[in-house]
Design a binder for these strands. Structure first.
Length: 905
RNA sequence: GGGAGCUUAGCUCAGUUGGUUUAGAGCACCUGCCUUACAAGCAGGGGGUCGUGGGUUCAAAUCCCUCAGCUCCCACCA
């Protein structure tokens, strides 16, 4: 392509869709098992109803970098995309949408509701996958999966049955986290505890004195104005109370005891007595348990086993009854009588008032406590006793812990091993049932008498049930009812690395054998337990092998002032808008520039700007090279020859470093190394070194080598910046293949001395530039450089380059000092630029004095070390030799400077 | 309440088993440049008592302890 036809600025819109379509047409993203080494990533499936946010952008950029690099390394790269049915979130969305249409979920049958849900999924689901294409994600779209696809559904059911038959799944009444808004149990991990400003209510419970009788008639039950007699004749005294403190006065309706510490002398005399619940007038015992903190509140605690986890455990210990006072939606149950049908928060206010009016409220304190909220609906979680399905975790967790601790699976960064261990060592049984419709329905079937069997189909269940002789008369198919609950979403996603290859149903199929275990998993630390840990468990249980070898944990994308990006704060930019403005490559670079694994990414659009600027820099370098006229006849200049040798060495040196960064999953460092290699070494140095004069042609050899370098750089950049690199790869020359499937350059041995020698030349050039600037000598004006040999032989290899870059008339080697010249020293070689009357002795002197001071400091420190006997006797020879060299260098420099100063005076 | 981690330039971070001159990078900043690839740029430059106070050592950003500050995870103090 001619430069006239190339945009002056890189314009991403023009090429991104073109290349993405091209890659799809060529089917580059698709993978089938073959003889090559596989490289596989399964995507953390985003919610099917989700839209792309910055977290996805970061996460998927990282995955794409890894996949594209692996593909270019000749591996059979396979990135499996897909979405998660996200039962609570999706069901909530569908319910909300139906509500807008005036339909109440309650009025729908299960089938009808699911029909709506599937319609919704077909319509809105998978938007996010389309969005991933915009950022360049090279997923194998032919393998796109959904956790509710038929075969994945079946895998989940198979696993449930298997675990049930192994005795690992059980059904039982437990205290669960109840979401009164979504009307379902949620796992511990889905509860977010927040500090809340609330109140601590001190409530007086009248003590029942079984020893006193009086002849009064019973008083109205809601009053304690005077003592009153109960039905059995015992009397409650109005002057004896026990006061408890609670944040939830409404739960007194479900109290079944009051509890004190067994060594608390304040209450010991109450042993064996009981109290009446205010307003309710139900008698409950006073019990004693060491759980009670004597210092807190009144030192006395009410026990409501149905509505508090601690109380629940105390209730079991003391064999207390449990009274559930709430309906599922958080209102008071009709059977309670008082406050029936009213919401828990309404009742809290009302009951406080009623208690006060009746004289039972001692006081109200302000109090900060932690309250659990549902991650999905933000409703206050209600601890609730309910009948749920559980998976026993203890034995499953052990091997999953081991493979991480012994680095069979590596976490990047490793600090997450600690967190993981802590969780796995304290793992609790997993509540896997959810009271929802959108999900895999639990394959348990109930007979009319309540007995149940677990089976894949109703027919199998029937056969099982009858063969086991549960009922006297054989059951008919219609007698069986399937469990209404579905499984926790994570109970399907924990199989993801297996089920996407159908490894549960067909454990030996070609795909699972080839791709499993997968290589890298890229995900957020928040779901280390929800998902990563459980995938490891499932992998070991069902494949007898780890699901992935490396886990790359990303950070959280935050805004400039450190807040987590979220919809509700409105502080999250739309990644697609960013892509429109800065280009996909620009945004990808922006995301990766400052996000080492495990570190939060403080995002600012200036990062994308930097990425975009980098694109433009590459683009312009391409335009420069592309615009050169190539001459087959002119000879290759000396400066070009040495420049090529140098850059070749530099390139290989940097490739080694980049490879090392990738091996350690330091993607930001790998990108930054590449960035500097391209911008600084290639553009700022190499291209300037070989660039022919304006409108002059370039020799064919140099041109050829330059194109080769540029191609290699484009290849190194491709995983980070797929679009622009594919474009310039093709503009720079006819290519047999596309860059996306080309072979990634590998490091080869290189001559390090070339790099060191050029390092000196770079210093010389910088010094000359500084002098030109200070003395206002325009670049166009040629100058002469004199070099004085001192002890060292001056390095001359890059003289032609120095001469060209600095516009030197010539470089002359002399043995005497030069008067009236600006001077500088590199190593111990002295350089002079004659300035005639432009020389300002005072300026030169100041400069020299500063250098002198520095050298003297250095000399002093080395001398101090070397004259220290203990240093000389303890330090290694190498260190001492280095120190000696430092000393002599410093001394030499001091000598040179001193002589120059003498001349100036 | 328990556990883990962090603290290096204005910002975000490197700094490998203690020893490479004066602790590095990117961005930001300052100065000068519209020098025909690029002002989304070029050239040059300034900036850090490595959180505090101790200790070990010939030698500490690096190892040990103290304190302070921050972050995350776990946990049911009503």
């Amino acid at each position: 392509m001619k430069n006239e036809d190339i945009a002056l600025k890189y314009s991403p819109q023009d090429i991104e869709d073109k290349w993405y379509k091209h890659w799809l047409d060529k089917n580059y993203f698709h993978s089938e098992p073959d003889d090559r080494e596989p490289y596989c990533i399964v995507i953390p499936p985003p919610n099917v109803t989700g839209v792309l946010h910055m977290g996805h952008m970061l996460n998927n950029t990282i995955q794409d970098v890894l996949v594209r690099r692996a593909r270019m390394q000749g591996k059979n790269a396979c990135w499996v995309p897909g979405t998660d049915h996200a039962s609570i979130a999706t069901e909530a969305k569908v319910v909300a949408k139906l509500k807008e249409e005036g339909i109440d979920k309650k009025d729908l049958a299960r089938d009808e509701f699911l029909k709506h849900a599937w319609e919704w999924k077909e319509k809105h689901g998978g938007i996010i996958l389309e969005q991933l294409k915009k950022l360049g994600a090279s997923c194998d779209w032919e393998r796109t999966m959904f956790t509710m696809d038929e075969d994945l559904y079946e895998s989940v059911i198979d696993v449930f049955i298997d675990l049930y038959e192994k005795g690992l799944i059980y059904r039982g009444v437990r205290m669960v986290n109840w979401d009164p808004s979504a009307l379902t149990a949620v796992s511990d991990e889905e509860v977010i505890h927040k500090e809340i400003q609330s109140k601590l209510y001190h409530i007086k419970y009248p003590i029942v004195d079984n020893t006193r009788h009086c002849g009064l008639d019973p008083q109205p039950p809601h009053s304690v104005d005077s003592g009153f007699r109960r039905n059995d004749g015992t009397v409650v005294c109005n002057d004896e109370y026990i006061t408890i403190a609670t944040t939830r006065p409404e739960t007194i309706l479900g109290d079944t005891a009051v509890c004190c510490h067994p060594e608390d002398e304040r209450f010991l005399h109450l042993k064996g007595k009981s109290v009446l619940i205010p307003l309710v007038n139900r008698e409950i015992p006073i019990i004693f348990d060491e759980y009670v903190d004597r210092e807190f509140g009144t030192g006395c605690l009410k026990i409501t086993p149905a509505h508090d986890v601690n109380d629940y455990h105390i209730g079991i210990k003391h064999k207390l009854p449990s009274i559930d006072i709430f309906n599922d939606n958080g209102t008071i149950h009709e059977k309670i009588g008082l406050y029936a049908g009213k919401d828990r928060f309404v009742v809290r206010k009302e009951i406080a008032k009623d208690l006060e009016n009746a004289g039972f409220l001692a006081k109200i304190e302000d109090y900060v406590n932690k309250v659990g909220f549902s991650e999905r609906t933000d409703a206050v979680i209600e601890p609730k006793l309910s009948l749920q399905w559980f998976l026993k975790m203890e034995n499953l967790a052990k091997p999953a812990l081991d493979v991480v601790m012994d680095d069979t699976i590596q976490f990047h960064p490793t600090k997450f091993k600690n967190t993981y261990r802590h969780w796995m060592e304290n793992v609790k049984d997993w509540c896997i049932s959810r009271q929802l419709w959108w999900g895999q329905r639990i394959p348990a079937f109930y007979a009319p008498n309540g007995d149940f069997v677990v089976a894949k189909t109703k027919e199998e269940a029937l056969a099982k049930m009858n063969s086991m002789g549960y009922c006297k008369n054989p059951l008919q198919i219609n007698d069986l009812k399937q469990d209404e609950d579905v499984l926790d979403t994570w109970f399907s996603s924990w199989l993801w690395p297996i089920s996407v290859f159908d490894g549960i149903r067909n454990p030996n199929n070609e795909n699972i054998r080839y791709y499993y275990p997968t290589n890298d998993l890229v995900t957020a630390p928040e779901i280390l337990f929800f998902w990563v840990a459980r995938m490891i468990v499932a992998g070991l249980e069902y494949q007898k092998e780890i699901p992935f070898k490396n886990v790359y944990l990303t950070g959280i994308v935050r805004d400039k002032i450190g807040r987590k990006m979220s919809k509700s704060l409105g502080n999250s930019p739309d990644p697609l808008d960013l892509i429109k403005i800065y280009g996909a490559d620009g945004v990808r670079v922006g995301m990766l520039l400052t996000s080492p694994a495990g570190n939060d990414l403080p995002f600012d659009k200036s990062l994308c700007e930097q990425g975009r600027n980098f694109c433009n820099k590459i683009w312009n370098a391409m335009r420069l090279v592309n615009g050169w006229e190539v001459s087959q006849t002119i000879e290759q200049p000396e400066y070009a020859k040495v420049s090529i040798d140098w850059f070749d060495a530099k390139l290989n040196e940097q490739i080694t470093i980049i490879e090392d960064h990738f091996a350690k999953y330091r993607l930001s460092d790998a990108l930054m190394t590449t960035y500097k290699l391209v911008w600084d070494d290639f553009c700022s140095w190499y291209l300037e070194m070989i660039k022919p004069a304006y409108l002059q042609p370039i020799d064919a050899i140099t041109h050829q080598k330059t194109i080769e370098f540029f191609d290699k750089l484009a290849q190194l950049l491709h995983p980070f910046m797929p679009f622009i690199t594919e474009e310039i790869w093709h503009i720079l020359g006819e290519k047999k293949e596309d860059i996306i499937i080309s072979n990634m350059p590998k490091s080869v041995s290189f001559d390090k001395s070339l790099i060191d020698k050029f390092d000196i030349a770079q210093h010389v050039i910088t010094e000359i530039r500084t002098i030109r600037k200070e003395k206002n000598i325009p670049q166009k004006e040629a100058i002469i450089l004199f070099v004085k040999k001192n002890n060292e032989q001056p390095e001359t290899l890059f003289d032609s380059v120095v001469q060209k870059i600095c516009n030197l008339e010539k470089i002359e080697y002399i043995s005497q000092k030069l008067e009236n010249a600006s001077t500088f020293i590199v190593k111990s070689t002295e350089f002079f630029i004659p300035l005639g009357d432009k020389i300002d002795k005072d300026v030169e002197k100041t400069k020299l004095l500063a250098d002198l001071k520095q050298a003297e400091n250095l000399l002093r420190s080395t001398q101090a070390k070397l004259s220290n006997e203990r240093f000389v006797s303890s330090a290694s020879e190498q260190v001492i030799a280095m120190e000696r060299k430092k000393q002599s260098d410093a001394q030499q420099k001091i000598d040179v400077i001193t002589k120059q100063l003498e001349q100036l005076n």
